[in-house]
Design a protein around this nucleic acid. Structure first.
Lengths: 204, 204
DNA sequence: TCTATGCTCAAACGATCGTTTGATACGCGT
DNA sequence: ACGCGTATCAAACGATCGTTTGAGCATAGA
């Protein structure tokens, strides 16, 4: 039993998440990660095999839950659900994750990095494991935009996903008004994002 | 006189621009840069002083022109100019740069990296040298959105700049329809971006 | 012609990278 | 009490990083 309430693997994942978000995948070294986690340097390769596999595991730990919540929220929508409802099903789980105590905010910033970095190995890993989630949401949005042709929808979805990813990544950084609490703050942010995205998708 | 039509400094900047865009600032080494540029390794430190200064020079070379064009386009607008006109003054120079032959597309992708990377030195460099451009555009947009209070405008501008940066970075990657030429393609992209951003900024 | 200056070059510097090794300690079933 | 996987440890591996060095070459001014 380790002296910490968390296992060595979890402590590595937590430290890696925060350092990857702050310094990037190349910028954060395994020595920084293990030192911050309070574990031995060799334990990364022992538990994960390589740095690349560690990166993948950082994504998998959060995305399995996050995308599961997204699909659940999407499945619970009725046929009468609006465009805003679909967007909310996509955004809300991510925003709640970014509020979470243990590194959730860091992970959302890592997601934005994954969008910018064009690392082939990471991109194919994400596409292979979670590409179907994006496809399902794209289909749900397309149903609510019957007048929009495929080509046009493709453009706008690309802009929307980029805008949402960027916005969610910087969500934690934006200073909130002092007179409202955390819960109200998140509701405000989500309303802004949904409003903005829906307006862009719907505009003639 | 070098054997190449371009000077050593320019060849380094060109190679660095492309490699930084593809592999990131940490991911691209000076050996890769100088090898790609066909110059000696030591010439980077000779001409620029350090890798960090080289990065700053990559930004300065493009941003001096790009932001100058943006301010020119903004200054040429009349008082009756619409919200879309202001957005177009901001977007058009960047999109034209991304079409340029020598590395323009790579630079726009670097811009997106600068948004995600929270490197303190780079951020303060950009803020010190080009922060006033964003402020001027924010003021011009605020004039066209009189019913929007400051707090609300602040939210939306943050989303817009992120979305535009991301979209412009990926602009070159999106495969265009085969039956339209490059000029029409750019006009289409700009219309989409402007439409999308204006709708989000204006929506009630 | 001699000198000074700007530039390029191969080579090496110390530091840090991801990874591997071999020894050591722990816990559990027999 | 013993043996056997599991896990942690300090130490070292070769590779690569940004940077520096000092010699060598060219061109321009005196």
């Amino acid at each position: 039993m380790p002296p910490s309430p968390f296992s060595t693997k979890e402590r590595i994942l937590d430290a890696a998440e925060e350092l990857f978000a702050r310094r990037g995948f190349d910028g954060a070294s395994l020595r920084q990660v293990t030192s911050s986690a309070g574990v031995n340097l060799a334990s990364v390769n022992y538990h994960f095999g390589s740095k690349e596999k560690l990166i993948e595991e950082v994504f998998r730990r959060r995305l399995d839950i996050l995308n599961g919540q997204r699909l659940d929220a999407l499945a619970q929508l009725s046929a009468q659900a609006t465009l805003e409802d679909v967007l909310m099903a996509f955004i809300q789980p991510a925003l709640e994750l970014s509020r979470e105590s243990r590194g959730g905010g860091a992970f959302v910033r890592i997601l934005a990095r994954a969008y910018v970095e064009h690392d082939e190995q990471l991109r194919s890993f994400l596409s292979d494991n979670y590409g179907d989630v994006l496809k399902r949401f794209a289909a749900a949005l397309a149903e609510r935009l019957p007048t929009l042709d495929k080509q046009e929808l493709y453009w706008r979805l690309d802009i929307v996903t980029g805008a949402l990813t960027y916005a969610m990544a910087n969500f934690g950084i934006i200073r909130r008004q002092a007179d409202i609490n955390e819960e109200q703050h998140m509701q405000q942010v989500m309303q802004h994002l949904v409003h903005f995205a829906a307006a862009g998708l719907r505009s003639a």
